[in-house]
Amino acid sequence: MKKTVATILKQKSSHDRITMLTAYDYSTARLIDESGIDMILVGDSLGMVVLGYEDTLSVTMEDMIHHTAAVARGAKNAFVVSDMPFMSYQTSVYDAVVNAGRLMKEGRANAVKLEGGTEFSEHIKAIVNASIPVVGHIGMTPQSVNKFGGFTVQGRDKETAEKIIKDAKAVEQAGAFAVVMECVPDKLAAYITEILSIPVIGIGAGAECDGQVLVYQDMLGMYSDFTPKFVKKYAEIGNSMKEAFSKYIEEVKSGKFPDKKHTFTLKEDIDFEKLNNEK
Protein backbone atom coordinates (compact mmCIF):
# COMPACT_ATOMS: atom_id res chain seq x y z
CA MET A 1 0.00 0.00 0.00
CA LYS A 2 1.31 3.44 -0.94
CA LYS A 3 2.81 5.39 1.95
CA THR A 4 1.37 8.84 2.59
CA VAL A 5 1.96 11.82 4.86
CA ALA A 6 -0.68 10.39 7.20
CA THR A 7 0.97 6.96 7.42
CA ILE A 8 4.40 8.51 8.05
CA LEU A 9 3.01 10.70 10.84
CA LYS A 10 1.28 7.68 12.37
CA GLN A 11 4.61 5.84 12.52
CA LYS A 12 5.93 8.40 15.00
CA SER A 13 2.92 8.13 17.29
CA SER A 14 3.03 4.32 17.17
CA HIS A 15 6.83 4.20 17.66
CA ASP A 16 7.29 2.41 14.36
CA ARG A 17 10.77 3.43 13.15
CA ILE A 18 10.75 5.06 9.71
CA THR A 19 13.14 3.68 7.08
CA MET A 20 14.49 5.84 4.27
CA LEU A 21 17.15 5.33 1.59
CA THR A 22 18.22 7.40 -1.38
CA ALA A 23 17.63 6.40 -4.99
CA TYR A 24 18.31 8.20 -8.26
CA ASP A 25 17.06 5.85 -11.00
CA TYR A 26 14.15 3.56 -11.88
CA SER A 27 15.78 0.15 -11.41
CA THR A 28 17.29 0.97 -8.01
CA ALA A 29 14.04 2.56 -6.86
CA ARG A 30 12.17 -0.63 -7.76
CA LEU A 31 14.59 -2.82 -5.82
CA ILE A 32 14.43 -0.57 -2.75
CA ASP A 33 10.65 -0.25 -3.02
CA GLU A 34 10.19 -4.02 -3.27
CA SER A 35 12.32 -4.44 -0.14
CA GLY A 36 9.61 -2.65 1.86
CA ILE A 37 11.22 0.75 2.51
CA ASP A 38 8.96 3.48 3.90
CA MET A 39 10.46 6.48 2.12
CA ILE A 40 12.83 7.09 -0.80
CA LEU A 41 14.82 10.30 -0.95
CA VAL A 42 15.95 11.57 -4.31
CA GLY A 43 18.80 13.50 -2.74
CA ASP A 44 20.92 16.22 -4.26
CA SER A 45 23.68 13.86 -3.11
CA LEU A 46 23.31 12.63 -6.69
CA GLY A 47 25.74 15.43 -7.48
CA MET A 48 28.52 13.45 -5.81
CA VAL A 49 27.51 9.78 -6.09
CA VAL A 50 25.97 9.91 -9.59
CA LEU A 51 27.34 12.98 -11.38
CA GLY A 52 30.82 13.07 -9.87
CA TYR A 53 30.80 16.59 -8.41
CA GLU A 54 32.78 17.34 -5.25
CA ASP A 55 29.65 18.63 -3.47
CA THR A 56 25.91 19.18 -4.04
CA LEU A 57 26.10 22.81 -5.16
CA SER A 58 26.21 22.19 -8.92
CA VAL A 59 22.99 20.13 -9.00
CA THR A 60 20.24 21.84 -11.01
CA MET A 61 16.46 21.74 -11.00
CA GLU A 62 16.60 19.87 -14.31
CA ASP A 63 18.84 17.23 -12.70
CA MET A 64 16.43 16.79 -9.80
CA ILE A 65 13.33 16.63 -11.98
CA HIS A 66 14.94 14.09 -14.32
CA HIS A 67 16.06 11.75 -11.52
CA THR A 68 12.93 12.20 -9.39
CA ALA A 69 10.67 11.25 -12.30
CA ALA A 70 12.69 8.07 -12.85
CA VAL A 71 12.47 7.12 -9.18
CA ALA A 72 8.75 7.90 -9.00
CA ARG A 73 8.13 5.46 -11.85
CA GLY A 74 9.87 2.71 -9.87
CA ALA A 75 8.41 3.41 -6.41
CA LYS A 76 4.95 1.87 -6.22
CA ASN A 77 4.60 1.90 -2.42
CA ALA A 78 7.37 4.04 -0.95
CA PHE A 79 6.84 7.74 -0.28
CA VAL A 80 9.12 9.72 -2.63
CA VAL A 81 10.80 12.89 -1.35
CA SER A 82 12.79 15.11 -3.70
CA ASP A 83 15.51 17.54 -2.66
CA MET A 84 15.26 21.16 -3.69
CA PRO A 85 18.73 21.95 -5.06
CA PHE A 86 20.98 24.87 -4.16
CA MET A 87 19.54 28.27 -5.18
CA SER A 88 16.16 26.82 -6.19
CA TYR A 89 14.52 28.30 -3.08
CA GLN A 90 17.05 30.58 -1.35
CA THR A 91 16.40 33.44 -3.77
CA SER A 92 12.77 34.12 -2.79
CA VAL A 93 9.59 32.63 -1.39
CA TYR A 94 8.10 32.84 -4.88
CA ASP A 95 10.94 30.81 -6.41
CA ALA A 96 10.61 28.26 -3.61
CA VAL A 97 6.94 27.63 -4.39
CA VAL A 98 7.43 27.53 -8.15
CA ASN A 99 10.34 25.10 -7.98
CA ALA A 100 8.66 22.90 -5.38
CA GLY A 101 5.69 22.76 -7.73
CA ARG A 102 7.92 21.64 -10.59
CA LEU A 103 9.30 18.76 -8.53
CA MET A 104 5.75 17.64 -7.79
CA LYS A 105 4.26 18.23 -11.25
CA GLU A 106 7.17 17.24 -13.51
CA GLY A 107 9.09 14.97 -11.15
CA ARG A 108 5.98 13.35 -9.62
CA ALA A 109 7.44 13.56 -6.10
CA ASN A 110 5.20 13.06 -3.07
CA ALA A 111 7.00 15.78 -1.10
CA VAL A 112 9.97 18.13 -1.30
CA LYS A 113 12.87 18.62 1.11
CA LEU A 114 14.75 21.84 1.70
CA GLU A 115 17.65 22.70 3.95
CA GLY A 116 17.57 25.36 6.68
CA GLY A 117 15.53 26.27 9.72
CA THR A 118 14.38 29.66 11.00
CA GLU A 119 15.70 31.55 7.98
CA PHE A 120 13.51 29.53 5.62
CA SER A 121 10.35 29.15 7.71
CA GLU A 122 8.42 31.52 5.43
CA HIS A 123 9.48 29.49 2.39
CA ILE A 124 8.27 26.27 4.03
CA LYS A 125 4.98 27.88 5.04
CA ALA A 126 4.33 29.12 1.51
CA ILE A 127 5.12 25.74 -0.05
CA VAL A 128 2.81 23.99 2.43
CA ASN A 129 0.09 26.56 1.69
CA ALA A 130 0.42 25.53 -1.96
CA SER A 131 -0.63 22.00 -0.88
CA ILE A 132 2.89 20.60 -1.23
CA PRO A 133 4.16 18.43 1.67
CA VAL A 134 7.55 19.52 3.01
CA VAL A 135 10.36 17.71 4.81
CA GLY A 136 12.81 20.02 6.58
CA HIS A 137 16.56 19.46 6.90
CA ILE A 138 18.57 20.87 9.81
CA GLY A 139 21.92 20.37 11.52
CA MET A 140 24.70 19.85 9.01
CA THR A 141 23.18 21.08 5.77
CA PRO A 142 25.40 20.14 2.79
CA GLN A 143 24.36 23.14 0.69
CA SER A 144 25.98 25.33 3.39
CA VAL A 145 29.32 23.51 3.15
CA ASN A 146 31.19 26.73 2.35
CA LYS A 147 29.57 28.54 5.28
CA PHE A 148 30.46 25.70 7.69
CA GLY A 149 33.98 25.31 6.31
CA GLY A 150 33.40 21.68 5.38
CA PHE A 151 31.12 18.75 6.26
CA THR A 152 31.34 19.18 10.04
CA VAL A 153 29.22 18.01 12.98
CA GLN A 154 26.85 20.72 14.24
CA GLY A 155 25.39 21.36 17.71
CA ARG A 156 28.33 20.32 19.86
CA ASP A 157 28.35 23.54 21.90
CA LYS A 158 25.61 25.49 23.68
CA GLU A 159 25.25 28.18 21.01
CA THR A 160 24.92 25.87 18.01
CA ALA A 161 22.75 23.40 19.93
CA GLU A 162 20.35 26.23 20.76
CA LYS A 163 20.27 27.21 17.07
CA ILE A 164 19.37 23.67 16.00
CA ILE A 165 16.57 23.46 18.59
CA LYS A 166 15.16 26.76 17.30
CA ASP A 167 15.46 25.52 13.71
CA ALA A 168 13.61 22.30 14.55
CA LYS A 169 10.73 24.17 16.18
CA ALA A 170 10.58 26.69 13.33
CA VAL A 171 10.39 23.95 10.69
CA GLU A 172 7.56 22.24 12.58
CA GLN A 173 5.65 25.48 13.14
CA ALA A 174 6.00 26.38 9.46
CA GLY A 175 4.10 23.22 8.54
CA ALA A 176 6.72 20.63 7.59
CA PHE A 177 5.43 17.11 8.29
CA ALA A 178 8.91 15.67 9.00
CA VAL A 179 12.50 16.79 9.39
CA VAL A 180 15.86 15.24 8.51
CA MET A 181 18.55 15.96 11.10
CA GLU A 182 22.14 15.44 9.95
CA CYS A 183 25.40 15.14 11.88
CA VAL A 184 24.37 16.28 15.35
CA PRO A 185 25.23 14.75 18.75
CA ASP A 186 22.95 11.88 19.75
CA LYS A 187 21.72 13.51 22.98
CA LEU A 188 20.66 16.67 21.14
CA ALA A 189 18.92 14.60 18.46
CA ALA A 190 17.09 12.56 21.11
CA TYR A 191 15.88 15.74 22.85
CA ILE A 192 14.61 17.28 19.61
CA THR A 193 12.90 14.02 18.64
CA GLU A 194 11.10 14.08 22.00
CA ILE A 195 9.85 17.67 21.80
CA LEU A 196 8.67 17.61 18.18
CA SER A 197 5.32 16.17 17.19
CA ILE A 198 6.56 15.47 13.65
CA PRO A 199 8.94 12.61 12.76
CA VAL A 200 12.68 13.22 13.00
CA ILE A 201 14.73 11.19 10.52
CA GLY A 202 18.37 10.99 11.47
CA ILE A 203 21.56 10.65 9.50
CA GLY A 204 24.54 10.71 11.82
CA ALA A 205 22.20 11.74 14.64
CA GLY A 206 22.08 8.63 16.83
CA ALA A 207 19.56 5.88 17.43
CA GLU A 208 16.80 7.81 19.22
CA CYS A 209 15.41 9.51 16.12
CA ASP A 210 12.05 8.38 14.71
CA GLY A 211 13.79 6.98 11.64
CA GLN A 212 17.03 6.76 9.70
CA VAL A 213 18.25 7.61 6.20
CA LEU A 214 21.42 6.62 4.34
CA VAL A 215 22.79 7.10 0.84
CA TYR A 216 22.46 3.65 -0.69
CA GLN A 217 25.85 3.77 -2.43
CA ASP A 218 27.45 4.36 0.98
CA MET A 219 25.75 1.45 2.71
CA LEU A 220 26.53 -0.89 -0.20
CA GLY A 221 30.18 0.09 -0.54
CA MET A 222 29.69 1.57 -4.02
CA TYR A 223 31.11 5.04 -3.32
CA SER A 224 34.69 5.05 -2.12
CA ASP A 225 35.59 8.75 -2.43
CA PHE A 226 34.55 9.39 1.17
CA THR A 227 32.78 7.31 3.83
CA PRO A 228 31.24 9.28 6.72
CA LYS A 229 31.54 7.95 10.28
CA PHE A 230 27.79 7.38 10.51
CA VAL A 231 27.68 4.95 7.57
CA LYS A 232 27.35 1.23 8.21
CA LYS A 233 28.21 -0.92 5.21
CA TYR A 234 25.62 -3.68 4.87
CA ALA A 235 27.34 -5.19 1.82
CA GLU A 236 30.38 -4.67 -0.40
CA ILE A 237 28.49 -4.50 -3.67
CA GLY A 238 31.15 -2.24 -5.16
CA ASN A 239 33.76 -5.02 -4.95
CA SER A 240 31.28 -7.57 -6.33
CA MET A 241 30.55 -5.27 -9.28
CA LYS A 242 34.24 -4.82 -10.08
CA GLU A 243 34.76 -8.60 -9.92
CA ALA A 244 31.85 -9.16 -12.31
CA PHE A 245 33.09 -6.48 -14.72
CA SER A 246 36.59 -8.02 -14.72
CA LYS A 247 35.20 -11.50 -15.38
CA TYR A 248 33.12 -10.18 -18.29
CA ILE A 249 36.17 -8.51 -19.83
CA GLU A 250 38.18 -11.73 -19.46
CA GLU A 251 35.48 -13.94 -21.03
CA VAL A 252 34.88 -11.60 -23.97
CA LYS A 253 38.59 -11.42 -24.75
CA SER A 254 39.01 -15.21 -24.46
CA GLY A 255 35.90 -15.96 -26.53
CA LYS A 256 34.20 -17.77 -23.68
CA PHE A 257 31.27 -15.33 -23.82
CA PRO A 258 28.83 -15.54 -25.48
CA ASP A 259 28.38 -19.31 -25.56
CA LYS A 260 25.62 -21.37 -27.23
CA LYS A 261 22.99 -20.72 -24.57
CA HIS A 262 23.37 -16.96 -25.07
CA THR A 263 23.18 -17.18 -28.88
CA PHE A 264 20.27 -17.19 -31.35
CA THR A 265 19.94 -19.83 -34.12
CA LEU A 266 18.41 -19.89 -37.60
CA LYS A 267 15.04 -21.52 -38.26
CA GLU A 268 16.40 -23.08 -41.49
CA ASP A 269 19.70 -23.59 -43.30
CA ILE A 270 20.63 -20.62 -45.48
CA ASP A 271 23.36 -20.40 -48.07
CA PHE A 272 24.52 -16.86 -47.31
CA GLU A 273 26.97 -16.73 -50.22
CA LYS A 274 24.20 -17.62 -52.66
CA LEU A 275 21.80 -15.22 -50.98
CA ASN A 276 24.35 -12.42 -51.22
CA ASN A 277 24.93 -13.02 -54.96
CA GLU A 278 21.28 -13.24 -55.96
CA LYS A 279 19.93 -10.27 -57.90
Score class of each variant (00 low, 15 high):
237 I>N: 02
156 R>L: 05
278 E>I: 14
193 T>I: 10
121 S>K: 15
215 V>Q: 13
222 M>F: 03
232 K>S: 13
237 I>D: 02
76 K>P: 01
11 Q>V: 01
250 E>L: 11
182 E>S: 11
191 Y>W: 01
26 Y>N: 14
66 H>T: 07
209 C>Q: 06
151 F>S: 06
106 E>N: 13
3 K>A: 13
140 M>P: 04
258 P>L: 11
91 T>H: 13
259 D>M: 05
2 K>T: 06
190 A>V: 00
270 I>G: 00
131 S>T: 12
19 T>E: 06
267 K>A: 14
212 Q>M: 02
73 R>M: 12
116 G>Q: 07
109 A>M: 14
24 Y>L: 03
175 G>P: 09
270 I>C: 00
211 G>W: 09
206 G>A: 04
155 G>K: 06
64 M>A: 12
171 V>A: 09
20 M>A: 15
207 A>C: 03
18 I>L: 15
55 D>A: 04
46 L>P: 01
35 S>A: 15
184 V>M: 14
177 F>A: 07
81 V>Y: 09
160 T>C: 04
67 H>F: 06
59 V>M: 13
15 H>E: 14
279 K>P: 00
256 K>W: 00
109 A>N: 14
251 E>G: 05
61 M>S: 02
5 V>Y: 08
123 H>E: 08
37 I>D: 08
198 I>V: 14
92 S>E: 10
257 F>S: 10
245 F>M: 14
11 Q>C: 05
265 T>P: 00
50 V>M: 15
206 G>W: 06
15 H>L: 14
140 M>H: 09
30 R>N: 09
256 K>H: 13
53 Y>D: 13
41 L>W: 07
245 F>C: 12
178 A>I: 04
112 V>E: 05
243 E>Y: 02
3 K>N: 14
6 A>L: 11
10 K>D: 14
192 I>E: 07
132 I>K: 08
123 H>W: 03
144 S>G: 05
247 K>F: 04
157 D>Y: 08
243 E>T: 11
87 M>A: 03
101 G>S: 14
250 E>M: 09
147 K>D: 02
174 A>V: 11
64 M>Q: 07
165 I>F: 05
122 E>F: 02
87 M>G: 01
147 K>G: 00
44 D>T: 06
146 N>T: 00
234 Y>D: 03
216 Y>C: 02
125 K>M: 09
247 K>C: 02
239 N>K: 15
162 E>W: 08
208 E>H: 15
93 V>E: 10
272 F>S: 02
119 E>R: 15
268 E>R: 12
13 S>R: 14
119 E>I: 12
21 L>E: 00
59 V>Y: 12
37 I>R: 03
